[in-house]
């Protein structure tokens, strides 16, 4: 007979078992992925279903907050959050990336760098409320800033610095050694190599870290409870003026506010926050992508 290969029965059985195991594993993994997606989807879905109607009310999104009466808006909160995010990023990125460059390119492996890295990793796990208390003691009280935009931004900077530094460091380390060798081999100095080859190549990784940080800043409330006002009717007009960010205000609205429509406002704020984070994410990604395309980083 042609084409019939003689396969021993036992081997055939083993083959079948392996095939079954393969199918089972695939199904299980698919199911797990679906569970994750479902949880995520239902949370976002719930927030949007409850909040979208509120968000699309111009009086809400562009209105002035009300302390006592119903019908307050959230525009100052939105603006505060955006200012806060920008200010924090302006403080954090140069320091974080600078420290990362030192760690990745100059420090080498020593007891001290290991200590720094361990410290940074530990700090990243400290609860944010502790940073809030620290910010209260240092910026608000000791520096006499009072609860304000700058005090909040500095506190958030401290909170996120370790993560920014570590993700940037990893991004820099992920740049192939061959790029450095090529550059140095051409006679470039170390600093030229970092500035012209290593750093540009690490930009996508650093950006990803930055986007995550933006999300954390926008969503942070505990660290801001003591360092910024929880409620304000106006957006900050200077670095040291007050202003309330959305996330802490959301917490405030649900727990402390006495406006009759607190529930509705909270739902609207939640949806607005999600949308804002999504929007900033998209903008950051778009800019990163355009940068990569301009640099010729992608084929």
């Amino acid at each position: 007979m042609m084409g019939e290969m003689h396969v021993p029965a036992r081997s055939r059985a083993r083959k079948t078992t392996a095939k079954t195991a393969d199918t089972v594993a695939t199904v299980v993994l698919w199911a797990l992925a679906l569970v994750c997606l479902a949880v995520l989807g239902s949370i976002i879905g719930y927030i949007l279903v409850k909040g979208l109607a509120v968000v699309f009310d111009p009086k809400f999104i562009l209105g002035k907050p009300q302390a006592i009466n119903a019908g307050g808006g959230i525009l100052p909160f939105l603006l505060s959050s955006i200012y806060l995010t920008l200010l924090t990023m302006v403080i954090i990125m140069p320091i974080g990336v600078g420290a990362a460059i030192y760690m990745a390119e100059f420090a080498g492996e020593s007891r001290i760098t290991r200590l720094v890295r361990f410290g940074a990793d530990s700090l990243a796990t400290v609860p944010s409320i502790v940073f809030g208390l620290f910010g209260l003691a240092l910026f608000v009280v000791a520096f006499g800033m009072g609860p304000c935009l700058m005090a909040g931004a500095l506190t958030l900077a401290l909170l996120n610095l370790p993560a920014v530094m570590r993700t940037s460091e990893e991004a820099l380390r992920a740049v192939p050694a061959s790029y450095r060798e090529a550059s140095l081999g051409l006679g470039a100095s170390r600093w030229q190599t970092i500035r012209k080859v290593v750093l540009p190549s690490a930009v996508p990784g650093i950006t990803t870290g930055g986007i995550l940080t933006i999300g954390r800043i926008l969503g942070e409330s505990a660290a801001l409870v003591f360092t910024m006002p929880l409620f304000a009717t106006k957006a900050p007009t200077s670095l040291f003026s007050g202003g309330a960010a959305i996330a802490p205000n959301l917490w405030y609205t649900l727990t402390e506010a006495i406006t009759p429509d607190a529930q509705r406002i909270a739902q609207g704020e939640a949806a607005a926050l999600v949308i804002l984070i999504l929007a900033l994410n998209l903008v950051a990604r778009f800019l990163a992508h355009r940068y990569q395309a301009r640099q010729g980083m992608v084929g």
Partner: peptide
């Protein structure tokens, strides 16, 4: 100058 084992053009 040096040319390496794996082609290593910069991502530029």
């Amino acid at each position: 100058g040096m040319v390496f084992q794996r082609p290593n053009p910069f991502p530029k």
